[in-house]
Amino acid sequence: MLSRVAETLYWMARYVERAENVARIINVNTHLLLDLPRGVAPGWEPLIAIIGAQGPFQERYTECSERAVLLYLVGDADNPGSILSCLHRARENCRTIRDIVPREGWELINELYLFAKDSVEEGVSKRGRHAFLKRILLGSQTIAGMLAGAMNRDKGYHFLFMGRMLERADMSTRIIDVRSENLLPQEAGDTHPFDNIQWMSVLKSMTAYQMYRRSMQVRVRRVEVLRFLLQSEQFPRAFRYCIGSVEESLAALPRNEPALRIIGRLKRTVMGADQFEALDQAALHAFLDGLQLGLIELHETLANAYFLPREEAVAA
């Protein structure tokens, strides 16, 4: 397997997964705003924070209005994290390896990109948004399913899979980080009915609500949600599950020791954090930051071991 091809597969999967995750956070925020009482609702700014784009966003937009944020996240070609940009990059990556990716996979990615490109306005509008986001979610799930069902489990597939799982682990920590801040003023007793709506929204943004119910059998509470989303070895969007998957794929590759060591450390860190009750928001933030830094280190280790030397690397 050529290093360039491995890297391209890895990024292609990351971008498809990223597009899906951006669609998820928009979706859940839309619902959250409808459910929470006026004045309590967090607005749209947190979404910009989730993807870590406050700076670039402020350079381009004067206010954090719904429309501005949606435009930025759905169809802004200058935002590398927008759904459109992610799909564009996924497509450009896929285009260079059309001899590796099953033809149907390329067609699906191409179609989804063309759909997103032609539907930015619907995606931004209140009325068309739901259908748009649903199509993005379904589209990226279909791509993942098609590739899972049609590709040899060779090195190429392992790189694709690692890209998807690393991206997912990364986005899970971001969503938790931004969405775990208590939205409700502690003293206001009448907000109680809304208390678990916030945590439900976190779960739903990761399609985790039903699985949480099945495996945790407790009401939706901060501590259990954090435990589920970070430590579950069964739920496929949980951080622990994601890095476990990376580990399994990595096992099939040569020269994997440095990356395996990082994963071992990340696993210990995330499973060792028993006292989520004791973690206040600041401590949780620092904890999640640590996980994200670990993911960055993991990516760099993979890149050093398997991808083209930096100066010749595929433009990511």
């Binding site: 397997m1 050529l2 090195k155 020269r255």
Partner: peptide, 22 residues
């Protein structure tokens, strides 16, 4: 299917491609 950046000519004047196995 390789591009120029996938290939390298080493000290022994042989051409190699960069793969995940080296």
């Amino acid at each position: 299917l390789v591009e120029g950046r996938d290939l390298v000519v080493c000290e022994d004047d042989c051409v190699y491609m960069r793969t995940v196995d080296g």
